[in-house]
Structure formats: structure tokens, C-alpha cells
């Protein structure tokens, strides 16, 4: 059975009750794994608290940090600082330079672009870099629900092009809610149905809300485990256990 994941829930962390309600709603809608992006300064303050709230609802909490750097060097500096502390790292790509740097950095898991179609820089060059570095393209569904008319038409057209490019270059796609309130949260199958608006087929859509995000989380959890040495090498016995 598929385990559905929503790696981009965005409650207002100043209001813990709202976060609690959104976690409960995610559990009710059928999600087993969720991530709430935190800033670096919020990480120590909220990570444990959110983990407890998720455990109460039987949901697996994934620690995620979203970086919104101003320059490429700021991005690499932040990555050096946080990569070993969190399970998922997302980069909000506000400019082409940031998008390119994020796509080629192996420490970045998710490339997230603003809903404004003019600020989405996922083209062939970006896809090629991302496919080499194992970064995934993250698509948020909430703008599709909130926008109407020409802005939604432009966004759908851009998303259709991005999905085709990602598929051509073998870049994994992760579809998340991007919801900042409960009213924007949808069931996994509803999210999959919405992806058909930008020409994702059903199997690809289901993978984008289950298999792909789960593989990112599992890969990073393995890397963060104390037994991890290098990809494919891990410690299975220590000290006196060794013959």
C-alpha cells in the first residue's frame, strides 16, 4: 500500500494551534508522512514540538529547512551549516543564479519556484544540472486552487512545460500541497487529479506524492544515521561485536 507524503505544509508557527489542526487534518486526509519547512533559526525551537504533535496523530514528521538565499555563496554557506541537521533541504529559487547553483549542488533535495510564472526558471539547462545532482522539482498545488483566470492559465502552461522537461531529463518530481491553511489541504488522490491539469499521467502523479518523496526521506535518513559511512557502506557491528 502506498504511503502518501506531503513535504510542504506551511502553517503559521507563531500559532501552534493552527499547526496542530493542520497536522490533524493531514492525518485525516490520509497522509502518513509530512514535512513543515522551518527556517534555520526556528529549527531548534520547533522541531521537537512538531515531532511530538505528529506522533500523537500517527504521522511521521520529516524535518525540513527551506532556504531563500540572496546569492549563490550564501546558499553554499547555509548548506554547509545545516545539511547534517535536517532530513530535507528545499531551496526557494527566486533568481536564475540561485536556481542554477541549487540545481547543481548535491546537498539540495528540492527545487521550489514561486507561483509567479515569470519567476520559474526550470528550463533544459536547469533540468540537466538537477538530473546530475539528484535534486527534484517540487510543485505546490495550492496556487492552482487559489489563483483564477489568466494567472492560473499562465501557471498551468508553465507547469506543463516544466513537467515535460523534467520527464525528458529524468528529474524526479515531488508534488506537495504548499498549504498555509487547512482549507487548502486536499486528499492525495485529489492532488493526483489536479496534476492531470498539467499533463502528468496517473502513475507519475501517484509516485510524485508517495514514492519520490519517500525515497528522498529514506535516502537522507540513511545518510544522517550514525552508521552511515558512504553511499553503499554502513557500519553493521561495532566494538566487541566484531569478530
Amino acid at each position: 500500500m502506498r504511503r502518501f507524503a506531503d513535504l510542504h505544509l506551511r502553517p503559521d508557527l507563531g500559532d501552534m494551534e493552527q499547526a496542530q489542526r493542520m497536522i490533524a487534518k493531514a492525518a485525516e486526509l490520509g497522509y502518513k508522512v509530512i514535512a513543515i519547512p522551518l527556517s534555520i533559526s526556528q529549527l531548534d525551537k520547533y522541531k521537537d514540538q512538531l515531532q511530538v504533535l505528529c506522533r500523537e496523530r500517527g504521522v511521521d514528521f520529516v524535518s525540513r529547512v527551506d532556504i531563500k538565499p540572496r546569492t549563490s555563496s550564501e546558499l553554499t554557506r547555509i548548506l554547509r551549516k545545516i545539511r547534517r541537521k535536517v532530513e530535507v533541504v528545499g531551496v526557494i529559487c527566486d533568481s536564475k543564479a540561485i536556481a542554477r547553483q541549487a540545481a547543481k549542488d548535491r546537498r539540495v533535495d528540492l527545487l521550489n519556484f514561486p507561483a509567479d510564472a515569470r519567476k520559474r526558471f526550470f528550463d533544459e539547462a536547469e533540468a540537466e544540472l538537477a538530473s546530475r545532482a539528484l535534486a527534484s522539482l517540487e510543485i505546490d498545488i495550492s496556487p492552482l486552487i487559489t489563483l483564477e483566470g489568466p494567472p492560473r492559465i499562465r501557471l498551468l502552461s508553465t507547469l506543463r512545460r516544466e513537467v515535460a522537461t523534467a520527464t525528458d531529463y529524468g528529474v524526479a518530481i515531488v508534488v506537495s500541497s504548499g498549504a498555509n491553511e487547512e482549507m487548502l489541504m486536499r486528499r492525495p488522490l485529489e492532488v493526483a487529479a489536479l496534476t492531470m491539469l498539467f499533463d502528468m499521467d496517473r502513475a507519475q502523479a501517484l509516485d510524485a506524492i508517495s514514492k519520490t518523496p519517500m525515497s528522498i526521506v529514506e535516502r537522507n535518513r540513511e545518510k544522517l544515521s550514525p552508521n552511515f559511512v558512504a553511499p553503499g557502506i554502513r557500519i553493521i557491528k561495532r566494538g566487541n561485536d566484531c569478530p
Binding site: 486526509l29 492552482l144 486552487i145 487559489t146 482549507m183 486536499r186 486528499r187 488522490l189 485529489e190 492532488v191 487529479a193 489536479l194 492531470m196 491539469l197 496517473r202
Partner: peptide, 23 residues
Amino acid sequence: VETVRAALATITKINDKPATAHV
């Protein structure tokens, strides 16, 4: 079915009041 599911997912208001519809 999927067309209607997508349309239901984009409902945010019913009679001008905030609402969502889940299958």
C-alpha cells in the same frame, strides 16, 4: 471521474462562504 475530482478539489467557496469538497 478524475475530471470531476479535480474540479471538486478547486472548490474554495460555496455560496460565497469558505468551503472545500473532498471525495
